[in-house]
Every structure is written in C-alpha cells, then in structure tokens.
C-alpha cells in the first residue's frame, strides 16, 4: 500500500489550506478569545472571534500544529463567518460526527468545503487534530456554557 492511502487524508485542498491558512493571525476587535491545547501533541491553538448582531463578524486563529489541525482551522474560519452560535453548534456536531465516520445528508450543506476532511475518519489517531479548531470555536461562541462541549466532543476529551 505504502503511501497511496495517504492521499485520502492529505487531499490537495487540505495541503493548500495548511500551507496558506485563511484568517491566520489576530483581530483588532475581539469579543471572545480562547486558547486550546491538544494534550497528546502539545499543539496550541488561539482563536479570536468578533461577534456582531448575534453573528460571527470576523475570526482569526494562531498557533502551531500539523497539516490536519492547521487546514481544519483554516476551513473552519471560512465556514463560520456570518453564522450564529446556534448554527455553529450544529456545524461542530456535524463535523465531529463526520470525522468519526457518521456523515449524513446534511453534512455537506452544513460544512461546505470542510467536508473534504471526511477522510480523517480513516485515520482515528488524527481525529483530535481535526476537531481542535471546531472545539475551540464552539467554546468561544458559547463561553458561558463551555462544559457542554465535554459531552459534545466525547472522543476528544
């Protein structure tokens, strides 16, 4: 098999997002800021969110990580702009299910381009890399109820 199966994980779009991540850096105006760590590898992700009129007006992430975590963070930032916390919660659940192999008819509609990360399901050791940014945005926009995440992303704690 050698490396042929790897192409299921490292799709071209994923490599491009990792090499040139969108919304990388920090924001001038931030309403929510959160720092999350992946305890298995020590990767750190800082996420800043500007909420306006109940929606995500702008978002930025910083930190270091592997291809999967960086690409996932980049795609997540593309998808959540303009969304309400309730919509984002639905997206995060859909993402979490997708990377554990449970895609539904709604997955693509909810996640857009980020659906390309579905291949992660074949690489269970990398699920945490993919979910870190989504877990972070969920906590950032629902900061008053962050404990709920522990149940939501059960494979991630």
């Amino acid at each position: 098999m050698a490396l042929s199966k790897l192409e299921n994980l490292y799709r071209q779009m994923i490599l491009e997002h990792a090499a040139h991540p969108h919304h990388h850096g920090s924001l001038k105006k931030t309403s929510q800021k959160i720092e999350l760590r992946n305890p298995t590898c020590g990767d750190v992700l800082t996420l800043e969110v500007e909420l306006k009129d109940g929606k995500v007006a702008d978002i930025a992430f910083a930190g270091s990580g592997c291809t999967i975590s960086q690409a996932s963070a980049s795609m997540m930032t593309d998808e959540v702009i303009g969304k309400t916390p309730a919509q984002i919660a639905k997206m995060v659940v859909a993402f979490s299910e997708m990377v554990t192999g449970k895609e539904t008819d709604e997955t693509e509609e909810l996640l857009g381009d980020a659906t390309i990360l579905a291949g992660v399901a074949q690489f269970p050791a990398r699920i945490k890399c993919a979910t870190l940014a989504w877990k972070a945005v969920y906590q950032a926009v629902k900061a008053d109820d962050s404990k709920a995440t522990l149940g939501l992303l059960h494979h991630d704690v």
């Binding site: 098999m1 490396l3 592997c66 291809t67 999967i68 690489f123 990398r126």
Partner: peptide, 21 residues
C-alpha cells in the same frame, strides 16, 4: 513537516513510531 504528519505516513508504511512531546 509536522511530526504527526510524518508518523501517519510511516504508519501507512507499516512502521510504528511515536509523534508528540
């Protein structure tokens, strides 16, 4: 290259290593 990506690639070649801190 991030070590996690390297370890995943090695695993695909049947080689078990560890990546992380």
């Amino acid at each position: 290259l991030h070590p996690h990506d390297v370890a995943t690639a090695l695993d695909m070649e049947g080689i078990a290593t560890r990546a992380g801190h």
